[in-house]
């Protein structure tokens, strides 16, 4: 099953939630919609599910016009951020709901429903909770039940809205791995929304980065991390150093100080220079593009994080290996191993 949206526009009052979005998801993919809150990712997901309607644009599921159908006919599995389990039903009845509300002509008999629910509860490894009520479950268990409930109707596609957003960090990590292996097992075309880059990069085959109702970049997790297409993506994914620079006559300037960096092919004017924190190599003064003085050093984990005041006036944080120890007051040179410059401020 493929999902395709074309030129989708949706406004809430004067707020443009979606501003011309095009996206194609191939059969069997697990795609992450990643972006800050208000970027339109949840709106996009709800429109695909039929829970919201666009002002204009097209939604095709498996090549068919989905906007001609209501949410009920689309046969889409939807998992809500806050689970939306039916609070007055047991876990078993929650999962069975989609089977019980089917038209009588196609409804399974009770024995078949029981068998199917059992199978799904086994799939999410929670068959022992069948008789409990949602209020008696932990957050992680509830989300897995919500997923089992969505899968019960054998959905054509699976949509997950911030599925781990309401869980604590440890449970999130477990569920991430679990979701990836589950997707591998059932292989249903899936889109999930998240604002957590680590989650998107770790779980998805492809990542769609959104901001202000537009898609900024679509690519594999490696692509969006290694070759961000815009200043927004570079700043949003991974920890970046962001410096306002000026390109003038083939020279890149930080403040009024020229940097020893090649400016080939760059448009003149105000720009932004991005470097990953761990891509700043430390050397003796005068050895790199930047000069700076170490202000403060924190040691934790495999790296030391140093606050460096650059001689252009900005203060940045860099991550360097712990074998070359830095101390507050050191004068150092910094050379970016890799960097990118985007025009604009």
């Amino acid at each position: 099953m493929t999902i395709e949206v074309r030129n989708l526009v949706k406004t809430f009052g004067s707020f443009k939630a979606l501003d011309g979005v095009d996206l194609k998801v191939e059969s069997g993919e697990l795609v992450a919609l990643l972006g800050p809150s208000g970027s339109g990712k949840t709106t996009l997901l709800r429109i695909v599910a039929g829970l919201d309607w666009p002002d204009s644009g097209e939604v095709l599921i498996n090549g068919e016009d989905a906007l001609a159908q209501g949410a009920r006919e689309r046969h889409v599995g939807f998992v809500f951020q806050h689970y939306a389990l039916f609070r007055h039903m047991t876990v078993f009845e929650n999962v069975a709901f989609g089977l019980r509300v089917q038209p009588r002509a196609v409804r399974k008999d009770e024995a078949a429903i029981r068998a199917r629910v059992k199978e799904l509860l086994d799939l999410v490894q929670l068959d022992w909770l069948a008789d409990r009520y949602p209020s008696q479950l932990s957050g992680g268990q509830r989300q897995r039940i919500a997923l089992a409930r969505a899968l019960a109707i054998e959905p054509r596609i699976l949509l997950l809205d911030e599925p781990f957003g309401a869980l604590d960090a440890k449970v999130r990590k477990e569920l991430r791995k679990w979701l990836r292996s589950l997707h591998h097992e059932i292989n249903v075309t899936s889109i999930f929304v998240t604002h957590d880059q680590e989650e998107a990069l770790e779980v998805a085959n492809r990542v769609v980065v959104m901001d202000k109702g537009r898609i900024e970049q679509i690519g594999s997790p490696g692509d969006v991390y290694e070759s961000p297409a815009s200043a927004f993506v570079h700043g949003f994914i991974g920890e970046s150093i962001e410096l306002p620079v000026q390109v003038e006559g083939g020279v890149i300037k930080l403040g009024d100080r020229p940097l020893r960096l090649a400016a080939d092919g760059l448009a003149p004017g105000a720009s932004k220079l991005f470097v990953r924190r761990h891509d700043m190599l430390v050397g003796p003064p005068g050895s790199g593009a930047f000069e700076g003085a170490v202000q403060h050093v924190r040691n934790f984990g495999p790296v030391q994080r140093a606050e460096v005041a650059l001689s252009g006036g900005e203060t940045i944080e860099i991550d360097t290996p712990r074998d070359k120890e830095l101390h507050a007051g050191d004068s150092i040179g910094l050379e970016p191993r890799r960097y990118r410059i985007f025009a604009g401020t």
């Binding site: 599910a49 039929g50 829970l51 209501g70 949410a71 009920r72 689309r74 046969h75 889409v76 599995g77 939807f78 809500f80 806050h82 939306a84 389990l85 039916f86 609070r87 709901f97 989609g98 509300v101 089917q102 409930r149 969505a150 019960a152 109707i153």
Partner: peptide
């Protein structure tokens, strides 16, 4: 949300009202 969940699971308006 529970109503939305019911509808996306294929319940009709009346089913959603009486069951959820």
């Amino acid at each position: 949300q529970e109503e939305e969940a019911a509808i996306s699971l294929g319940a009709s308006g009346l089913q959603t009202f009486f069951r959820v």
